[in-house]
Design a binder for these strands. Structure first.
Length: 535
RNA sequence: GCUCCCUUCGUCUAUCGGUUAGGACGCGAGAUUUUCAUUCUUGAAAGAGGGGUUCGAUUCCCCUAGGGAGCGCCA
């Protein structure tokens, strides 16, 4: 497999030569198709907030015939690794946010970034700074103590390079304006003004010669022809500094849109203890990509009273200018509800294949070991892992489970699907309710269902078994008719018969409709389970 | 500490100065039902506080309070 960096190098050339290479300013006619990008740093997974940012970009590009590019911000060599990069690509693919062209490695463009730094140096828009870290820290501490903004004003800005100390490797700093203000005309935040006196001369090249993030972003966005920079508000002040770099190079500034962050249920920044940060967690819990997209886009954006918005509608309706400024809290209940809608609307075969994808990524032992905040919402994949342990302890992970379903036949699950999908909010719940298909014999009854099997129930089940053995039609409808006749003859209430039956068939007091269970289980397996209750 | 941003039901949101402040999730009640769900009906639930501007403020302005983000030779 090609490393994404290698793949990119040749591809990047095409951006430089291609028709999109000309940057379009925010003042450009708005009918130009936009070029946007998603630029995550490789941290190990695709953060759910990042996923929403990617979604906004993707929708904007797709709705306007533009391009959605992907760039990996991997200039920090210590944090970067191939696995972290592929986790992000994986997450985007699962969410079905296909990007145009190859992913660009920012690190691979370091030479170009240095070239731009040198240009700035030549034009006098940047200078070498010989200040040492200790000196900078001291200045910042002093500023803080005096209640001034913690910025460092380098003495080297106006000093002659001939004063440079021997043997000290300098950094390159941008010669930012000290007077006036830098204004960001943001499509979400509005006009945001930063007094230039509060912005220090940012380092654009480290003393080891490596370009910094802010320089790299500007050069890459410019070279890639990005027209709209849509990213998290945490980059708002960067936008001001980056604007100064654009100005230094006399490049057109792209349109900015800084979208609010997503918080956990408690209003604090979404973190580990909230249970799920990476999109891979959402895949594991059994959310459908389309439902997640629908949910994510509604966090901070709306279209009148519309709640269920299939992706085609989102592409048609979405607009950056409609995004809210305030942060929103993540609500699993609402996601669950939306996901339930999409599950009910999905085709049975499609659900099976989505389930297979989900199972391929589940490790039950790992899920059972997950330590979650007690206040965090319960995870349906963790619940599934526990159910598997109770009903089929021999199964270690999702792949095993998938193999077991394959052994009994996926067609059985598909046959039960209409009944299953109207009582599931996630695919993991759906699989949990289908577990009776692969329960190990003899079926282990949980506490409540075991309680149902008293002497009365046993004799009822024995009598029922006799009838079932004689019946020649094993479809749910016929079986139900059979049981109803049985009830009439014996004067028993349907519930009195159905509940014990459900218990011995599924080991649970809650399940899909018993007659559906009987049908998909088949005559032999059903009778085996009913008769097991007699010993 | 400094700079910037935010504030409508518990949560996500609608409202382009005049509405009985609407919808959705969740919650309560009821109907349907073999369990659980689904579905349907229905109920409770909001403009942070204080000043202005205006005939009239949820909407515009200011202050306060609360929340968030940023302030790296990280990205």
């Amino acid at each position: 497999m090609l490393c994404y960096e290698q793949r990119h190098k040749s591809h990047f050339e095409s951006y430089e030569k291609g028709p999109m290479s000309k940057a379009v300013t925010s003042n450009a006619p708005s009918n130009m198709p936009p070029v946007v990008r998603f630029a995550p740093s490789p941290t190990g997974y695709l953060h759910i907030g990042g996923a929403r940012t990617a979604l906004f970009n993707w929708l904007y590009a797709r709705g306007r015939g533009g391009k959605f590019l992907l760039r990996i911000e991997d200039t920090d060599r210590e944090r970067n690794n191939e696995a972290a990069v592929s986790a992000i690509l994986d997450g985007l693919r699962w969410l079905e946010l296909e990007w145009d062209g190859e992913a660009v490695s920012q690190f691979s463009r370091a030479d170009r970034h240095r070239e731009v730094a040198n240009l700035l140096l030549e034009q006098g828009a940047a200078y070498h700074c010989y200040a040492q870290p200790a000196e900078i820290d001291a200045a910042r501490d002093a500023a803080k103590a005096e209640g001034r903004p913690q910025i460092f004003l380098s003495p080297w800005r106006d000093r002659s390079p001939s004063d440079a100390p021997q043997g000290v490797k300098p950094t390159v700093r941008l010669k930012a304006p000290r007077e006036g203000e830098t204004v960001i005309d943001d499509h979400v935040q509005g006009q945001v003004t930063f007094p230039n006196k509060d912005l220090d001369d940012l380092i654009i090249v480290r003393s080891d010669g490596n370009p910094t993030y802010n320089l790299a972003v500007v050069v890459d966005d410019h070279d890639m022809g990005i027209t709209h920079v849509v990213r998290g508000v945490d980059h708002l002040t960067n936008a001001a500094r980056q604007t100064q770099i654009y100005q230094g190079m006399d490049w057109p500034v792209p349109a900015f849109a800084h979208v609010p962050l997503i918080h956990g249920t408690d209003g604090a920044k979404l973190s580990k203890r909230h249970g799920a940060q990476g999109v891979e967690d959402y895949r594991s819990m059994g959310y459908l990509p389309e439902a997640l997209r629908n949910y994510l886009v509604r966090l901070g954006w709306s279209h009148g009273d519309d709640e269920i918005m299939p992706t085609a509608k989102l592409i048609e309706w979405f607009d950056i200018d409609g995004i809210n400024r305030s942060a929103s809290r993540f609500d699993f209940k609402k996601l669950d509800d939306l996901n339930g809608h999409y599950i009910r609307q999905a085709g049975d075969a499609e659900l099976i294949s989505r389930i297979q994808v989900m199972l391929a990524h589940q490790d039950f032992a790992e899920l059972r070991a997950l330590v979650l905040d007690p206040k965090a919402p319960p995870r349906s994949d963790v619940a599934l892992a526990h159910e598997v342990q109770a009903l089929a302890p021999g199964i270690a992970d999702g792949r095993d489970l998938a193999a077991r379903f394959a052994a009994v036949g996926w067609d059985k699950m598909q046959a039960a699907m209409p009944a299953l999908k109207e009582r599931a909010r996630t695919l993991a719940e759906l699989v949990s309710s289908a577990l009776f298909l692969v329960a190990e014999y003899p079926v282990t009854l949980d506490e409540k269902s075991a309680k149902l099997i008293d002497a009365d129930a046993r004799s009822t089940l024995a009598a029922l078994a006799l009838r079932f053995e004689r019946s020649n039609d094993w479809r749910a409808e016929a079986l139900e008719a059979e049981v109803r006749v049985f009830c009439e003859e014996t004067g028993a209430k349907l519930g009195k018969v159905a509940q014990p039956l459900r218990a011995v068939l599924t080991g649970r007091t809650v399940s899909p409709p018993v007659f559906t269970v009987l049908e998909v289980l088949g005559r032999q397996e059903s009778l085996k389970r009913i008769n097991a209750s007699q010993v």
